[in-house]
Write a protein that binds this DNA or RNA. Structure first.
Lengths: 221, 221, 221, 221
DNA sequence: CATGAATGAGGGTTCATTCAT
DNA sequence: AATGAATGAACCCTCATTCAT
């Protein structure tokens, strides 16, 4: 992904920006390493992936790896950062928590967010696989980083909820912070089940149940 | 085997535990190994834990480990099994999904379950730490086992919901299966946050939010 | 196995031969261990055979082994000794090197020896397998013992040859000692080929070739 | 052995060996490992030799070993192959089975072969020690390989015999195949005795006895 | 700058041997 | 006397990391 296809309108550029070119190549390889590491970590797990695996997939010497990253431990940080960036970017446009002005708008927004999450987390199962299965428990520091991502998601959700409360289409006594945590939990449950069975109807059923539960609860009337 | 069998007021005892002393000691050590492995895996992670670590904590030679378990891989299975047993047992008494006959009963039951889960999962943070962080991604087979635990939780929750629908205090059109998955997700979110900050009031706030969301949703009226 | 369940027609026997009986049992088990060790060593090799293997085949605790033999190294000595005894015994009756009084007698004697060797070495391939494959290279001391067996065979053969020279049906200038070594080499070659392919006609062909070569050489006339 | 011998008169050499210096060094180390493993296996035996032993003799880290050979099991294959190559090479020049045209030529040829075998097998006792003592019984596959070497020797000898029969200086009714096996047995006996006592006159006596037995047999006239 | 050869700490596992029961 | 639980030395092998080329 994101190979940026190394644009070779070479000659002219080379004259004007000689060093930049090398730098660009470095940055490209750096990104390639991150991408490949992501794939390996997600598919085989952090511990089962060797530096040599990553290097040989890229066709580079494994010593080269250490020119771009100082550690095996180092790169997973960058993989996670990269991932976080991608997720934020994917949510980007419609993440404005003040976009919805009615309960119906809200429902629609939830749908859009669901679709966006599906896109990065379920469609490419590897993202969730890495975040939920293989990045856990490596390190206290990395765990803290994952918690940070969770907090981000919680905060985002809380923003939506607060907005709904302000606009009056959500309960006034809503504990937005804690409810947001609960909602995030449901979303992650959806992602996990989506990972297991990529069956669309099953996923849709769960998504619908989540939306319904979120808005109406389970109570009878 | 069955040495001496040291005739003790035989009949009654023999029914419950016909084991000799040696056998009992073996079983005890076996359980001690499981317990210690649980602690190590939960605190340091599966990969960071060596057989020698477990053995030296117990004060036994590391060769002894292999008299009780055939593998490093072998023992985590038993640790997980042991854990699953403990969880089931802890839920045991109040897990009857037909105990509640009204919405208020239901609320009370939710509280009790929450308390029980808290007891094993939050109070001893290591249980959740192992299940959610360190047991993931070791192995496809183990992952399947974890999914099995999740399914169990989902099924249990679905049972409660179905019962509520039957008795009429829950929505008749409730998609119990999928809703159960969402609910389990919320519960796990609660566990995760409980792990992070063992602050009782924070935990209680989240628990309350979950209950409220579950029953009433977020909608205004 | 062989627990004999301690048959207690005790009193009488115990009075007359109290120690002898126990001693006999000990000797029996001792021999059983040797026999089983022989089978294991021959079939799996010395290094691949564990003390526990031998013990479990016999149905005894592997600690018991050490009451009869001080070492793993110790027992192979006894296995080899036992084997040497069996071989000597098998050759026993017709091994008188002065039995033959003519070249025809000699031929017949060679046949008989061949049959006897076949019986212990080829028919039970394990004997040769142990001696030629699995007992070699364990130890300098054991190697010396094997060389001793070889010397014995050489000496035996040399005896036959000397007798033939004395009686005048073998060349007067025969270097009996060295020729005996060569002959033993041929015999062992026969045993090795017999081990590989237990095909009778093939073995007979080789045996015939050996006899012919021995007596007439390869020269034309 | 064969160290350095570094780049001489490049151009011509480059044709035969286009290898870079690094490649040559790799090949050299590889061969050094084989040679050292040969020495260790021959002197201490396969099981008593640790990878660390080989590595420390060479002054390399034991991890380096695994860059050149995948297994402990792997290297003995290469040691044996190397040995087989050396033996074939040593026999190479005079192994033409059609070189002899008379019985006297044949005798001379036998002498030359004996000398060649002596050179590699007796002079360096370790070759025979490895092949006959330490390489046996490691593995069914390796045993098969050793049998292959034996077959090779048998076939070679059979070639000589057939040639002699064709030229008419050996018995027309000679069973060349089986006789060859017997002859190989004698040769190996000679090697074994040469290993034990490197006394030249003793070895010569045995060699002479073998030649005499081979050609004339033991019969009186 | 890229490479990959070299390294050795570290870990899992086996098994001969001992000894309390 | 028999047992088998316990032991730990020993060994094979992996792989992250370094550094000379």
């Amino acid at each position: 992904m994101t190979h940026h296809s190394s644009c070779e309108h070479s000659i002219i550029v080379r004259v004007t920006k000689p060093s930049t070119r090398a730098e660009r190549r470095k940055a490209e390889l750096r990104q390639d390493i991150i991408d490949t590491a992501f794939v390996c970590f997600a598919e085989k797990g952090y511990h089962a992936t060797g530096i040599a695996d990553i290097a040989s997939i890229l066709g580079i010497g494994h010593g080269t790896f250490y020119r771009y990253f100082s550690n095996k431990r180092d790169i997973i940080d960058h993989v996670i950062d990269d991932l976080a960036g991608r997720i934020v970017e994917a949510l980007g446009t419609e993440n404005a928590p003040d976009a919805a002005t009615s309960l119906d708008d809200y429902r629609a927004q939830l749908d859009r967010i669901g679709v966006a999450l599906d896109h990065i987390l379920v469609e490419d199962r590897r993202v969730a696989q890495l975040l939920l299965f293989h990045a856990t428990g490596i390190d206290d520091e990395l765990t803290a980083r994952l918690y940070g991502l969770l907090d981000m998601a919680d905060a985002l959700t809380a923003g939506y909820l607060s907005h709904g409360v302000e606009l009056g289409y959500l309960r006034a006594d809503l504990d937005t912070t804690n409810t947001a945590k609960a909602v995030t939990g449901m979303l992650i449950a959806g992602i996990v089940h989506g990972m297991r069975s990529p069956d669309t109807t099953a996923v849709n059923g769960l998504n619908e149940a989540i939306r319904r539960l979120l808005i109406d609860g389970v109570r009878k009337d």
